[in-house]
Simulated scan of single mutants.
Amino acid sequence: MLLGTYTPKLDDKGRIILPAKFRAELAGGVVLTRGQEHCIYVFSAATFLQQLEKLRSAPLTSKQGREFQRFFLSGASEQEPDSQHRVTIPQVLRDYAGLDRELTVIGAGDRAEIWATEAWNTYYAEREEAFAATEEEVIPGLF
C-alpha cells in the first residue's frame, strides 16, 4: 500500500528517486501515466495491469470511454527503477503536470501521485476544509 507525502526533487535528467517507503511495492516495475487534476499516476506494473483490464471492459461505443483510454494510455511509460531507485518522468508527462524541480509525491493507496509542489499546495488548501467538514457518505460503505 502506498501512503504518505514526500517531497523529492526532479533532477536535471527528469528523474525522481522513489520514496523509500514505496520501493518494495514498486520494485517489480512501474507505469507512469496522466492522472486527473494534472498529476502523474504511478502504478506498480501489477496494479496497472488490473487497471488496464478495467479499461478494456468499457464498451467501444462509449465516446467518453475511448477518450479516457486515449489520454490514459498514450502517455503511459513502463519503467524499471534503476539501482538508485530512480525513474525518469518522460517530458510529455512533465509538461502535462507542469513539473519543475520541486515535487510532492503522495501515496493514494494503490498508486502514487506526482504533483508540482505548488499545484499540490493549492489543491490541498482549496479542498482541506471541505474534507474536514464532510458529513455525508462519500464512498458507499466507508464511513
Rank of each mutant, 00 (worst) to 15 (best):
A24Y: 02
E78K: 11
A119D: 12
F131W: 11
T61L: 15
L52K: 09
Q64A: 15
L2P: 09
A46Y: 02
S57T: 10
I40H: 06
T5F: 06
Y123H: 15
D110A: 10
S83W: 00
M1S: 11
A112M: 01
A58G: 06
T88R: 11
E129Q: 15
T88I: 13
A133E: 14
V42C: 10
L32F: 04
F143V: 13
A133Y: 03
G14H: 02
V138I: 14
E37W: 05
R111M: 04
S83V: 04
I89G: 06
T122I: 09
Q36H: 07
G107Y: 00
K63Q: 13
G141M: 12
Y41N: 15
G141K: 12
L2M: 15
L142R: 11
I16Y: 03
K9A: 03
L18M: 09
A24G: 04
P59K: 11
Q91R: 10
R56F: 01
R23Q: 13
A45E: 12
A116D: 10
K54L: 15
R86L: 08
I114Y: 01
T104K: 06
A97N: 05
Q36P: 00
A116F: 02
D100A: 10
F43Q: 12
H85C: 12
W120V: 03
E80A: 14
V92P: 00
Q64T: 15
A112R: 01
P81R: 09
Q91F: 02
A24E: 13
A27W: 01
E25W: 00
E113Q: 09
V138S: 08
E136I: 03
T33R: 08
L10H: 00
D12Q: 08
L18F: 05
G107R: 02
T117H: 04
D110N: 12
L26M: 13
P19Y: 02
T47K: 14
T88V: 14
R101V: 02
C39T: 05
R94N: 03
